[in-house]
């Protein structure tokens, strides 16, 4: 299981690392495209002050096999891509796409509002909206004088 800790303090180093990877990829003339494997799918994370949206490219997945669970500040995305069924007489000439189960867990720097979490699967792209819990207002404590 892959677990990545993402907090406010480390946003920028992650971004730097991604940028460096992209640079290396460009130098090698081969675009880096991580894909669904046992390591889990590649994520893009979008943020604003109310929460975040995780997107992942997961083409050819039965939406009912996708399972998204939220607990506190941790979100887990798992699913399965079924391998192509080919007749026995068929000759495989190229197999670049991979299949199998994947699971990825991500810790966010805030408590996720599980009730408002939404997931949409469209054109092979999964988007999970994870709002933060908003109702944590500071408590006013009244000091009684005795």
């Amino acid at each position: 299981m892959v677990s990545r800790v993402v907090s406010n303090a480390v946003w920028s180093p992650w971004r730097e690392l991604a940028r460096f990877q992209n640079e290396v990829g460009r130098m090698l003339h081969e675009p880096i495209r991580p894909n669904a494997s046992s390591d889990g799918p590649a994520f893009n994370i979008y943020r604003n002050d109310r929460g975040s949206v995780i997107t992942a490219e997961l083409p050819g997945i039965d939406a009912s096999s996708l399972e998204i669970s939220v607990s506190g500040d941790v979100v887990t995305i798992q699913g399965k891509r079924v391998a192509e069924a080919n007749p026995e007489t068929a000759r495989v000439q190229r197999r670049e796409r991979n299949a199998g189960e994947f699971k990825r867990t991500l810790k966010l720097p805030y408590r996720i509002d599980a009730g408002k979490t939404e997931a949409v699967y469209q054109l092979g792209v999964l988007s999970v909206t994870l709002p933060s819990v908003q109702d944590e207002k500071p408590h006013q404590i009244v000091v009684k004088s005795v």
């Binding site: 946003w11 992650w14 943020r47 604003n48």
Partner: peptide, 8 residues
């Protein structure tokens, strides 16, 4: 939203 972290 704004992109905060990118793997692809």
């Amino acid at each position: 939203y704004q992109l905060a972290y990118s793997e692809f």
